[in-house]
Write a protein that binds this DNA or RNA. Structure first.
Length: 273
DNA sequence: ATGCCTTATTTCATAAGA
């Protein structure tokens, strides 16, 4: 069984690359993040023609997650119990936003696929350490851990995967010095990952395919992909049952090349259950 | 080696991404 995750940075803009990649890599389950489309607007005809069922959770312009599966798609959860809304402080300069209800964003979708409980997550970015988005990120991760505790107990074969927007160690960024004072590398964020692992989840680290650095994201700007100035922020956290069944795991950096790529590469994990 | 930013929208400018 092949399970993959990919932040596509808009499924609409990435549609030709996505459908091409589905045929090429032929995953049984594909978790998507940053689909950037409403749930009922997901352009899934190409995937369905290849035999995939699709579960989507979408907001529209931002966020958006999905699971594509050709090995069954049951017990779909849009978001998780207790998922906190994003509620920034009122913006005095924008009266239209004052009094707007806080919004639970489309950042998580769960489903049971071929005997594996799968969650596709897009963790909030955090933006900067002094932004309200940063405590939101930490709160979101704490709530995710609480919600998944029961799921991990209930499913031997379990994985939560996607764009965590956290580099687990300094080895997971090209230059730790460039991140001093930034999000994605703080002790608080890394502790949140450690808390998740504390549920009994294992970080399945993929092969890099090149450079011995299994980065999954490279900024579009300044040729950073070509200089291998990247980060490993797309993670695959699996129970022992699933992690112990892994036969191969790799970053498909070829998908980061060529015309119209996402800024993230897919992570592909092969398991023999 | 595979190319020097991209996305959707409040569109010819902006916010967000990480």
């Amino acid at each position: 069984m092949r399970i993959a995750t990919w932040n596509v940075n808009s499924v609409g803009a990435r549609l030709p690359r996505l459908n091409e990649w589905l045929e090429l890599a032929s995953p049984d389950v594909l978790c998507l993040q940053e689909t950037k489309c409403a749930g009922d607007a997901f352009p899934g005809e190409g995937a369905e023609a290849l035999g995939y069922e699709i579960a989507t959770n979408g907001d529209g312009r931002w966020n958006g997650v999905a699971i594509l599966s050709r090995v069954g798609l049951d017990d779909v959860s849009l978001g998780f119990p207790g998922q906190p809304p994003y509620a920034p402080p009122p913006d005095e300069d924008d009266p239209a936003l004052i009094g707007a209800p806080p919004m639970v964003e489309a950042r998580a979708v769960g489903a049971s696929c071929g005997g594996v409980r799968v969650w596709s997550v897009y963790v909030p970015n955090g933006r900067s350490l002094d932004s309200p988005h940063y405590p939101y990120k930490l709160e979101w991760l704490a709530a995710l851990r609480t919600a998944l505790a029961d799921e991990v107990k209930a499913h031997d074969a379990f994985v939560v995967t996607g764009d965590f927007n956290i580099a687990p160690t300094d080895d997971d960024v090209w230059d730790p010095g460039a991140f001093v004072g930034s999000t994605h590398v703080t002790d608080a964020e890394r502790n949140a990952l450690a808390e998740l692992r504390g549920l009994g989840l294992h970080d399945v680290i993929p092969r890099a395919m090149k450079h011995d650095t299994p980065y999954t994201y490279w900024d579009y700007r300044a040729g950073m992909f070509h200089k291998n100035m990247g980060m490993r922020i797309d993670l695959f956290y699996a129970t022992q049952k699933l992690a112990g069944a892994v036969k191969d795991a790799y970053v498909d950096r070829d998908a980061r090349k060529g015309k119209g790529p996402s800024d993230h590469a897919p992570v592909v994990v092969d398991v023999d259950l």
